[in-house]
Amino acid sequence: MKLNLLLLLFIFFSKFSFAAENTVDPNLIHKNLRCLVCQGQSISDSNSDFAQTIKLVVKDLIDEGKSEDEIYEFMSDKYGDWIVFKPQFNTQNSLLWILPYIALIFGGFFIFSFLKKRQ
């Protein structure tokens, strides 16, 4: 079983070392932008005028060599943070990103306190 796992690990890693390219995927960006005129859909899911326009602009921005995060920043500059599905890590959102992990660590600590100190 361990051998299988090692083999699997190997296959996956080798697959990855080849696929590590640094291109920006427009589809991914479309998925992470909210279509403001639709009910809860992403730009990728929508075909509205707004979504089409955003798709064109995203394509331009990628051609200009902007990175994924720069594109999100551009969009939230123009339309507010509401448009980006991935909340930025800033002071306002710090609790959102950190609290789950605090809960995780705290929970682990809690369980540990229940364990026998010595076997």
């Binding site: 992470n32 509401w82 599905f85 959102l96």
Partner: peptide
């Protein structure tokens, strides 16, 4: 609290 609307979508949940 801050009058700023944010979206929390799939990228957040996937990452955490």
């Amino acid at each position: 609290l801050t009058d700023n609307k944010i979206s929390v979508g799939p990228p957040f949940y996937n990452a955490i």
